[in-house]
Design a protein around this nucleic acid. Sequence first.
DNA 1: CTCAATCATTGAGATATACAACGATTCGAG
DNA 2: CTCGAATCGTTGTATATCTCAATGATTGAG
Lengths: 155, 155
Amino acid sequence: MRAPENEPAEPVAAVEPDLAGEIEFLTVRAAASGTRLARARLRPLGLNVRSYSVLALAGSGDGWSQRAIAAYLDLDPSQVVSLVDELEAKGLLTREVDAADRRARRVRATPAGTDLLVHARQAAAEAEDEALAALAPEERAVLLRLLRRIVFAED
Amino acid sequence: MRAPENEPAEPVAAVEPDLAGEIEFLTVRAAASGTRLARARLRPLGLNVRSYSVLALAGSGDGWSQRAIAAYLDLDPSQVVSLVDELEAKGLLTREVDAADRRARRVRATPAGTDLLVHARQAAAEAEDEALAALAPEERAVLLRLLRRIVFAED
DNA sequence: CTCAATCATTGAGATATACAACGATTCGAG
DNA sequence: CTCGAATCGTTGTATATCTCAATGATTGAG
């Protein structure tokens, strides 16, 4: 090899122009702007995106454990602790020791939490609608299916 | 209205079971896991997801301004400052005053930065391939198109 | 009964995001 | 040409988020 310290006439060529071809980049960007929209609409309800997610789980099924919430939302268990603390302090959910496994706590929405959740779901739906304004309903359905397969590796 | 402090036999019903039907939720989750994969593969190269993004822009086009980088990556301009600082300190890019507008700095990848970028792109591509393992190539193309329309509101 | 594993919790450190203020510079109105 | 508003990069700060390690209580396997 010659002149290793300097490549004068190298084509360089490649190095494509931008990141718009990378799904990862677009996903991060879409997530960020969607989160911003959702946050703006949830704030008047006293919720942020994360506490909304936790409340939504608390309002579904029959008593999620905090561990399960952490796994489902892809959060560290310690984050769930403070989120549940916050929502519990507001009276939106309860944290009860699981009779079958006294290490675990079962988290359930209170009536007040369920009521708020109705409005929060509406707010989230509006934010989603705004974020996806460029897509027709069928396209949104396609996107949903694809994302679900990525996240849950199923269909 | 009667007994406003207690709704005994309310159906509650609705309150759907989970968040898997919300595109916003899935997008955030897909972005998080994709970022984790990318971070793991970029770390050996001394880059994180953000510095990779900045370097990728510096290696494309002809001198992005920091302002343009911030807009394109959806970052605060102050974040771009430290990212460019870091990459400049490593000799991966240069920051030159724009002759046409001396307020602006034009950011360009150095030869070392361009070399590293080749490997970084490969790493990012591998991470993306792993993140999207559940999807066939045509499905990835569909996803790419949909995301691009959301993010750039164009097609 | 003992030991490893699990759950919730606490705390700390790293990273990310958002916002306000500033000097230097550009640009348009008059 | 001059003045003032707007823009660019920068610094600093406040807040949120992520990640990791350690701990007590409890479970379950052997």
